[in-house]
Computed example of a mutant assay.
Amino acid sequence: MNDYSELKRLAEEQCISSGLGMFEDHQLCENILSLIADNKRLAALLECAQGDCRQAMQIIERLTPEAELYQQIQIAAGSLPSSWEISLRVEKGYGGVDLIDPHGTVVDLDNVDESLSESVASAVAFAMSKEG
């Protein structure tokens, strides 16, 4: 009986039926039918809201890596020791992070399995460990 049209049909049938005496008050019948309609609208709104939440989560999932990279770049800008540099390299089919020491030498961090944000964080940590 979780189908709203079936519930409405039963309520209407009971309202029309005078033999049972359950819904002799016309206003009570109207109230019951109104509640059924409200429940149907609420269920539709809930379904829509859940769909909106799913869509919002999909957007967040797509934007999260970009936000993490932005956050790590901000951290690097404030934490990277003087004379160290981080360079983001992008070419067709590749994106990577280079850490450049104070002598201008590119440090091999062996971070091929890391995301760009993880690579920036690793580069900062490495540079800080060498300066500390």
Rank of each mutant, 00 (worst) to 15 (best):
R9P: 01
R9S: 04
L10H: 14
L10A: 12
L10V: 11
L10D: 15
L10R: 14
A11T: 13
A11N: 06
E12R: 06
E12S: 06
E12T: 10
E12W: 02
E12Y: 03
E12K: 08
E12A: 06
E12C: 02
E13I: 09
Q14N: 03
Q14A: 11
Q14K: 10
Q14I: 07
Q14E: 04
Q14V: 02
Q14Y: 02
C15K: 02
C15R: 08
C15A: 15
C15N: 14
C15S: 14
C15P: 03
C15M: 10
I16M: 08
I16G: 02
I16H: 12
I16A: 15
I16E: 13
I16S: 07
S17F: 10
S17M: 06
S17G: 12
S17N: 10
S18T: 12
S18V: 13
S18Y: 03
S18H: 13
S18L: 12
S18M: 07
S18F: 07
G19T: 06
G19H: 11
G19A: 14
G19Y: 11
L20G: 14
L20Q: 11
L20K: 14
L20T: 15
L20D: 08
L20C: 08
G21N: 09
G21L: 08
G21W: 07
G21Q: 10
G21V: 13
G21H: 03
G21E: 11
M22T: 15
M22H: 14
M22A: 15
M22S: 12
F23Q: 03
F23A: 15
F23D: 04
F23N: 14
F23S: 15
E24F: 00
E24W: 01
E24D: 05
E24T: 09
E24P: 01
E24K: 02
E24N: 08
D25K: 01
D25L: 02
D25T: 03
D25H: 04
D25E: 03
D25N: 15
H26K: 11
H26C: 05
H26L: 05
H26T: 11
H26Y: 06
H26E: 11
H26N: 04
H26A: 10
H26R: 10
Q27E: 15
Q27A: 15
Q27N: 15
Q27D: 14
Q27C: 01
Q27G: 11
Q27K: 09
L28F: 13
L28V: 13
L28W: 12
L28E: 07
C29G: 12
C29I: 01
C29A: 03
E30A: 02
E30P: 00
E30D: 05
E30Y: 00
E30M: 11
E30K: 01
N31K: 07
N31T: 09
I32R: 08
I32E: 06
I32H: 08
I32D: 04
I32G: 03
I32K: 04
L33R: 02
L33W: 10
L33G: 04
S34C: 02
S34F: 07
S34H: 07
L35H: 10
L35C: 07
L35Q: 09
L35M: 04
L35N: 06
L35K: 09
I36W: 05
I36M: 06
I36R: 08
I36C: 03
A37I: 00
D38F: 00
D38W: 00
D38C: 00
D38L: 00
D38H: 00
D38N: 01
N39D: 03
N39A: 10
N39Q: 04
N39P: 01
N39R: 05
K40R: 08
K40P: 01
K40M: 04
K40N: 13
K40L: 09
K40S: 12
K40Q: 11
